[in-house]
Structure formats: C-alpha cells, structure tokens
Amino acid sequence: MTKHLLRKQRPNIVVIGGGTGLPVILKALRRKNADITAVVTVADDGGSSGIIRDYINVVPPGDIRNVLVALSDLPEIYKNIFQYRFDSKDQFFSGHAIGNLIIAALSEMNDSGIFNAVQELTAMMKVEGHVYPASNYPLVLNARFKDGSVTSGESEISAAGKTIDKVWVSRSNNEAPEAVPEVIDAIMDADQIVLGPGSLFTSILPNLMISNVGKAVCKTNAEVIYICNIMTQKGETEHFTDADHVRVLHQHLGMNFIDTVLVNTEPVPNDYMDQQKYDEYLYQVKHDFNGLRSLGCRVVSNNFLELRNHGVFHNGSQVVDELLGLTSRPLSWMDSELN
C-alpha cells in the first residue's frame, strides 16, 4: 500500500473516536489552521446518554455534545450553559446535561435522523469544522470474550471483567449499520485520519466496525494515525502494550492499516493518580517498538503527558503540534522513530 499526503496550506484532518479524549485533541486543533471533521461514536449507553437513549430511542448525545463544545466559537457563558448538568434530586433531570436534552429534542424534531439535527446545531453553536455522527441511528455495541461468551451494550461489556476477543455493532432493526455519505467522503478526502485517544474497544472500534467506515479508512490515501492511550483500561486493555492496541485494530479490519502511532514516553509519577476517581485506569501502557514496526507502523514517541487534578491525560497542544508536523513530512515506510 502506497500513501502520500496532498500538501495544502490548511491540512484536512478527520478525527474519529469518542469519550473524553476526543475533545482534548479537537480543542487544540481548533486553535491551529486546520480543516477539522470529527466522526463521533453513537454506541454509548451509559449515564445521561443511556437514559435519554432508552426513553426516546435517539442516538446517545453525550459524546456529540462534548465535541460540539470543543469546536464551538460561542462565548464561554453559552458553552457552560450547554454543558450544565442538573444536580437536582428530580428523578428525571438529575444528572442530565442541558446539551443532551437539546440534542435529543432536535433529533425528535428532525425525522430524518440525528445527522441533520447535528448539522443544524453546528450552525447554531458557530462550530469551526464539521461534526458527523458515525451513524444516523443509535447502534448497539456487541462483544465476544475469550471464553466464548457474548454480551451487548458498552456499559455491560466494560463491566464484564473478561478479556475481549472481538467487538461489532448492530442496529435494533437488524439492518447493517452504515455511515451517511458525508462521513465516507470526509475520510476519502482527508490528509490525515486520527484515531483516538480513547477507549480501544468502546470508543474507537465502534466507529470502524461500521462497514463502510472501516472500508474507507483502509482505502483512503490519507495517513492513518493512532494516538495510543497512556494508561491501560480496566475491562478492556489490561496488560496491553502499545503494539497490542494496534494489533487489535488490524485484526478487526483484517489488514495493517495504521501508518503512524503516537506514543507517550514520559513516565507517570508513582502515586500521582487518584485511583478512586479514575478507577478504570490501571497501569501505564508498556512499549513494544519492535512490535509496532513489525506491524508496519512508523513510531513517533515524545512527552505527550499532562498531569491534572490527579489524573493522567494527553497534552492536546503537544499532540497536535506533532500531528501538524507530520502533514509536512513525507510518509516513509522505512522503520523510524522520532523523538
């Protein structure tokens, strides 16, 4: 497979994922001169998103809400209102973010699905870039574990405490999930496809398991970059190396499609993390650079670590500086490691 990047003054970057990692990268990209498209997972079934999804059967709004705010040019007061989460003891409103309710309302008003509703909201919120739900309809995430058992639902999968073998997505009406043409066009026209950071099995793979999305990511001429997680995750990637993350991605799509991997090499200080607050994160991901290169990946290693509020995060500015630097470097299939 030969790939090249079409050099432009404004690189066209598509970021695919969900969870808390995606907005970190998007906020940093928004401060740079990049043409941004966010493709957001629609398989979440936990928290406020899961409750709203169960009540009115709409695409879970939480990840979409956070991405809209990350790319919005509205004053902070408006974004804070959109993000406000009720702490009332009212049985319905407690725990719901105002933005989730607005997205759900627009979905009901727009009978053609969530995609057009989100496009209306991007205009209202003065979003810089594009926000595309990975599917126009809510999807169910399914998993088969190493012991052969199968379960459905993102929350149930994470809580099962078993080693995941494979995940896939389905619709409630048993139709094959597909992304709208705009999502596929964005992937095919991109200079860079960025996966993550985020939960491997529940934030990144649900997007790639949509058949036409996975095929487009494998077929595009864009450089496909995986931002490897800093920490392993309970119920998903316990004891994984960085090469194990990429190996799982390749196995799910049936080919080696990751071109470049961004890896944090800065150690997390002992006893820094609040293990009660961040109880899903276990150990720092171990490095296997030889394994990554054997999978056909260029390795970019650097200090991408940000320590904040006794939690471990990616430094969005540092990651984005590296991403934009890669748009000006030729993609070489020679083994290389940049420090």
Rank of each mutant, 00 (worst) to 15 (best):
G235I: 10
N116Y: 15
L323C: 05
Y78N: 05
I184E: 08
V299N: 02
A216I: 02
V167E: 05
K89C: 13
L295A: 08
I184K: 06
H310M: 12
M334H: 03
G235P: 10
C228R: 07
L74R: 11
T241A: 02
V213T: 03
G198W: 07
M125S: 00
W333P: 00
Y281R: 10
N303H: 00
G50S: 04
N309D: 15
E337W: 11
M209W: 01
C297G: 04
G50K: 05
L139V: 04
P267N: 07
D54S: 10
P11D: 13
L324M: 07
L307Q: 06
E156T: 13
D279W: 14
N315D: 12
I103N: 05
N100M: 14
R31A: 14
V14M: 12
V319F: 03
V39E: 04
F257Q: 12
D274I: 12
M231N: 03
K162R: 11
S294C: 04
L6P: 00
I51F: 06
L68S: 11
L29T: 10
I13D: 07
D271A: 07
T202N: 00
S49K: 01
N33E: 15
E182K: 09
V39K: 03
G161L: 07
Y278I: 09
Q83A: 15
R308S: 15
K219Q: 14
V140E: 13
K162M: 08
A117G: 13
Q192F: 15
A190N: 13
A159I: 02
L26T: 04
D259S: 11
Y132Q: 09
D63I: 08
S48I: 12
V39H: 04
A123K: 15
G19P: 03
V224P: 00
G46Y: 10
L68I: 14
M124W: 11
T237E: 06
L101A: 14
S328V: 13
L323A: 03
G18Q: 08
S317P: 01
R171E: 11
R7I: 14
N207P: 12
I184Q: 01
R144L: 02
D185G: 00
Q284P: 06
E76V: 05
P206K: 03
I210N: 01
Q318T: 09
T37D: 05
L121G: 04
L68M: 12
H130V: 14
A176P: 08
P197I: 11
S294F: 10
I13Q: 05
L141E: 06
N100V: 15
G254C: 11
K79R: 14
G291M: 09
F92N: 02
V261R: 05
L331N: 06
P269C: 07
A43T: 11
K286V: 10
V246P: 01
S48V: 13
N80A: 12
Y132C: 11
Y137L: 04
Q192G: 05
K162H: 10
S155K: 00
